[in-house]
Design a protein around this nucleic acid. Structure first.
Lengths: 164, 164
DNA sequence: AAATTAAGTCAGCTTTATTGACATAATTGA
DNA sequence: TCAATTATGTCAATAAAGCTGACTTAATTT
């Protein structure tokens, strides 16, 4: 299947190592999103709806512009997805008391239910991988992923979870 | 930003830990793909073209059906992307001598050049993260990601690179 | 000879994203 | 106070990337 497994090139291991990392990321993300995608299809939703539901659930009262910065998509792209989630009562918005230009977003009970449904499957997948890999590997996983993420967004993610 | 940091729920840390993992994956994949996406746009290509170029480059002589199994998309979706890469001479196909139903796919010089251009940026991002994190963290990263990937596709990815 | 496999193609559809322009309301700064 | 900026929302037009289902051709396998 994979050709040229010769060690003629002294950089082989390094290149091979990096390519494996890229493939691990690709396969992991592919499988990580496949289950929720299939469930969302039953609602006529796509992955974008999931992302919005997830981040609103995670950050109740988040603003539209904050959401845009997280998702890194355009306002128009978000607008269609968010608009539908609002119309179909998965999300509600409330005007911010302090800055009345802002619309704060919250999940409804219905939205929370769907969020749980989708996230639970993914959480189980992660939990299984974490359990199998052990605490040390988990720290490594987190450290490397944080290194892959652009500097400016790393702050949002704690270096290590508080010990329990 | 993030609300309800109370420890009322005894499962809080576990849930928090899993959500952080999901977010790490999301942000890492988002930033990992953003650079190539921007470069591809100059060619009028999208991420799908990159994936095809990458996997053909990685597995010269790969068949169409093998590619479909890796990407987990439909033949029609691949067809549009692959067709264009063939027409624009980034990829060539050669009929397999043994089984003449099969079309083996290869990058052209032009295809290889684009592949390198795209992959180099991503490789640098990974290399930087690997360097900063250290060998032990890298092993953990690999172990956890492998655990996230569906059983049936794990075989394609070696557990340890140096054991080749 | 029949069944299966590999590849390709047709038509029609949806989701998710893009750009650019513009509108409204509210807040901030000179 | 008035101008500039910010937050949100909306218009129209476009493209990428995926989907289903049906069908064909050629080659191989049973």
């Amino acid at each position: 299947m994979t050709p040229s497994k010769t060690h003629a090139n002294p950089l082989f291991l390094r290149d091979e190592e990096l390519r494996q990392a890229m493939e691990l990321l690709f396969y992991a993300y592919r499988d990580f999103t496949a289950e929720p995608d299939a469930m969302l299809a039953k609602y006529g939703f796509g992955r974008a709806h999931h992302r919005v539901i997830y981040f609103v659930g995670r950050n109740p009262g988040i603003t539209v512009s904050r959401l845009l910065a997280i998702l890194k998509i355009t306002k128009q792209s978000l607008s269609r997805v968010l608009g539908r989630l609002l119309r179909e009562d998965f999300i509600v918005q409330r005007t911010d008391r302090v800055d009345r230009r802002r619309r704060l977003l919250f999940l409804t009970a219905k939205g929370e239910e769907l969020e749980r449904l989708l996230t639970d499957r993914q959480a189980k997948r992660i939990a299984r991988a974490y359990r199998q890999a052990g605490a040390e590997a988990v720290e490594g996983f987190r450290t490397v992923l944080r290194g892959i993420i652009n500097e400016d967004d790393r702050s949002r993610l704690a270096a290590r979870p508080e010990r329990r």
